[in-house]
């Protein structure tokens, strides 16, 4: 337990240090291309229960918000603003639009190579449409794993490469998120890892989960050009 707390502390430190210091390599002034490492999506240590599934009593149940233009984390208190584009909490991903926020954000999940997508479409973006009260509707991105042979109306972004009792969350290779930001700009994103430090081989007993590593390209001039 103590170790977890230390790790959590360390991860918060590293989060602060890493924020905004991705390897920016803009092709021109309006384009940001970066990799964001270890975004903390409500990490909390697992507590094993003698009866029933393990729980995470320390989790805050809050989304971690991200803004593509600045590459920065946005405070959760700003959830009702258009300052954030995308939010992460555990395997759940939301966009600032529809039932999730006041913005104009949306997403298209394209089966492609990240570098191969150079132009963003202008239409076809899906927004969140989930009613918390009636528990109806769907999010643009599903929180559940992709399962072979199953077609769902929402986009799955991960698959379980572990077992039914010991899940390993692996982002599906070749899923490019084409994103419209809260203020109507275009970006693309690819999730690379769900575990801290993006380990090549995940050990879900020792590696900390709910840490997103993703790469993205943001076009700040309002055009659809994504390279």
């Amino acid at each position: 337990m103590k170790m977890f707390r230390t790790l959590l502390f360390l991860s918060l430190i590293s989060l602060l240090t890493l924020s905004g210091c991705g390897d920016d390599t803009p092709v021109n002034s309006t384009v940001v291309a970066a990799t964001y490492k270890d975004l903390n999506a409500d990490y909390a240590p697992l507590v094993l229960n003698p009866a029933g599934p393990p729980t995470r009593p320390a989790q805050k149940n809050k989304y971690t918000f991200f803004n593509f233009a600045t590459g920065a984390i946005i405070a959760n208190t700003d959830s009702a603003t258009t300052k954030w584009d995308i939010g992460f909490r555990s395997t759940s991903i939301i966009f600032n639009s529809g039932t999730s926020g006041p913005g104009a954000a949306g997403v298209i999940v394209q089966k492609d190579i990240f570098d191969g997508v150079t132009v963003a479409p202008t239409a076809g973006y899906t927004t969140d449409n989930y009613n918390k009260v009636t528990k109806t509707g769907t999010f643009a991105i599903s929180t559940s794993p992709f399962v072979d042979g199953v077609t769902t109306t929402t986009n799955n972004w991960w698959l379980n490469s572990g077992t039914s009792t010991s899940t390993i969350i692996t982002p599906i290779a070749g899923r490019v998120f084409l994103i419209k930001t809260a203020d109507g700009k275009y970006a693309k994103m690819e999730i690379l890892s769900y575990y801290k430090g993006a380990p090549a081989v995940v050990n879900n007993l020792t590696d900390l989960d709910r840490y997103y590593t993703f790469r993205y390209v943001y076009q700040g001039d309002g055009t659809t050009k994504l390279n």
């Binding site: 490469s161 572990g162 982002p171 599906i172 081989v201």
Partner: peptide, 19 residues
């Protein structure tokens, strides 16, 4: 595979995100 006879987790072979 949900573990071998002693419940040890069998490391799955898929490790590159396509299942």
């Amino acid at each position: 595979i949900d573990g071998n006879i002693q419940g040890e987790t069998v490391p799955p072979s898929d490790r590159n995100g396509n299942g």
